[in-house]
Design a protein around this nucleic acid. Structure first.
Length: 403
RNA sequence: GGGUAGGUAGCGAAGUGGUUAAACGCAACAGACUGUAAAUCUGUCGCCCUCGGGCUUCGGAGGUUCGAAUCCUUCCCUACCCA
């Protein structure tokens, strides 16, 4: 196939990018790719310790997709082997290690979700245990001789932890080297990552050269902030918008982001063309409410479809603006028709609430509703005469079906 | 191997024999308000029954005491210094 021209490629590639190191090398690689009609190998490492993909991951996956659209080959490396090490990037704590089986399973799940973003045509998925698992101890020692402790301590989080007198396990130093070996093994032309991965990606360049390969170009993407607007988006901080979330959740969570984040989300998490971005900027200033709704719908449409986006907006209005019931409520068979159940028991049994003490508190605070009537007394018994809708807080609904 | 400082609720961090289920901050949750699941304000925030209590927590295990997160013994873990 014919590749688009250098300029066309660079325009698309550069959207939203944080850094390309070195850009000149990328230009050279693309020129050669066009001339020899050979796709570039674009590497992306997946962390199988957290297999639930969210918008944060989508930033870099979407960039990978753009490379695919330009005719290049995406190579997803599932770090099943490195998952056993645990990458501490951006963390002040050592991550727990996983077994090989767990990382494999998570890898499958990762790929499953990544499919929503990537094109199936030119993608390869490989497990790095394939080559890392075969290395002998002697080879590992030789590899580790190519990097020094001082070089490792240049990485910010290592540096910080070291200065704070916090533990750094020796194996954590091996992670960047292992990741670099991935680049050696697949002979990547470009490696993608978040800006927090810059150090690791650069080690890849250095080690590729050590092994007599052409050094990869590294391309870093900005870190997408979470819905709290402060921390980076992550599952453990529960400030994420998952790409497998329901339309309702994606819509609601998106509306909850601070207004100042809207533009970044448009650039990094939607397919709004570059040419429209200026208009978006004005719209954000002039009508933030509608613009944020548009953002939310764009994102829902990306992972579901346009109809789901419209439905999500309608439902949101119904629940939060009109304080009505959602369209579809999760159902659960519980109790028997005609019998009475204590409200605390009901809440605890249906797992709507983790403990009876918690249930009691919620009732005292006026957060529990049964069939649209506020429960005011924790001792109250509910007689189940038919489908009963229990609401806890603003957005937990359950339809109880007595047997 | 020796020495020093530490290990407290989801996180950070007070508390060093008796209203201490454990200050405070963050996070979380509920309510009010709002274009929003934002911001702000108010409240809650170990478990179980009750408006008075019961039970289980302060790295693990033992012990001293009427009584311990707080004292002792021992073990485990972390950082730093020395070897």
């Amino acid at each position: 196939m014919a590749f688009p021209s250098l300029n066309e490629q660079m325009d698309l590639i550069k959207r939203g990018v944080s850094e390309i190191i070195p850009e000149a090398d990328l230009v050279q690689k693309i020129e050669r790719s066009i001339k020899t009609n050979t796709p570039l190998k674009i590497k992306l490492g997946c962390d199988p310790s957290r297999p639930d993909l969210h918008l944060g991951h989508s930033v870099v996956l979407r960039k990978l997709r753009q490379f695919q659209d330009l005719g290049h080959t995406a190579i997803l490396i599932v770090g099943d082997f490195t998952g056993m090490i645990g990458d501490p990037s951006g963390k002040s704590k050592t991550r727990p290690s996983l077994t090989l089986e767990e990382t494999r399973k998570n890898g499958e799940s990762y790929f499953e979700q990544a499919r929503k973003i990537l094109s199936p045509a030119n993608v390869r998925m490989v497990y790095n245990s394939e080559w890392l698992g075969k290395m002998s101890f002697a080879e590992v020692i030789k590899l580790s001789s190519k990097y020094t402790v001082s070089q490792m301590l240049e990485r910010e989080d290592f540096h910080t932890r070291f200065n704070r007198e916090e533990p750094i396990s020796l194996h954590e130093f091996l992670y960047p080297l292992a990741q670099a070996m991935d680049s050696v093994a697949i002979e990547s032309d470009v490696e993608l990552g978040g800006t927090d991965q810059k150090f690791n990606l650069l080690v890849g360049r250095a080690i590729q050269r050590e092994f007599g390969k052409e050094a990869q170009v590294i391309l870093t993407m900005p870190i997408l902030p979470g819905t709290d607007g402060v921390e980076k988006m992550s599952k453990s901080l529960d400030n994420y918008i998952g790409i497998s979330d329901s339309p309702r959740e994606i819509f609601g969570k998106t509306l909850s982001i601070p207004d100042r984040l809207m533009y970044d989300f448009f650039v990094l998490a939607t397919n709004i063309p570059n040419t429209e971005l200026d208009a978006i900027k004005t719209a954000i200033a002039e009508e933030p409410r509608n613009t944020k709704r548009r953002l939310a719908k764009e994102i829902v449409a990306l992972y579901h479809d346009a109809a789901a986006a419209t439905a999500a907006e309608e439902e949101f209005d119904r629940i939060f603006v009109k304080k009505d019931m959602p369209d579809e409520i999760e159902e659960m068979t519980y109790g028997t028709t005609g019998t009475a159940v204590n409200i605390l028991q009901l809440l605890a049994d249906t797992k709507l609430v983790p403990s009876k003490g918690e249930a009691r508190r919620l009732i005292e605070q006026g957060g529990v509703t049964v069939n649209n009537e506020k429960v005011t007394d924790a001792k109250m018994d509910i007689t189940l005469t038919g489908p009963t809708i229990v609401k806890v807080g603003k957005r937990k609904f359950l339809k109880v079906l007595p047997a």
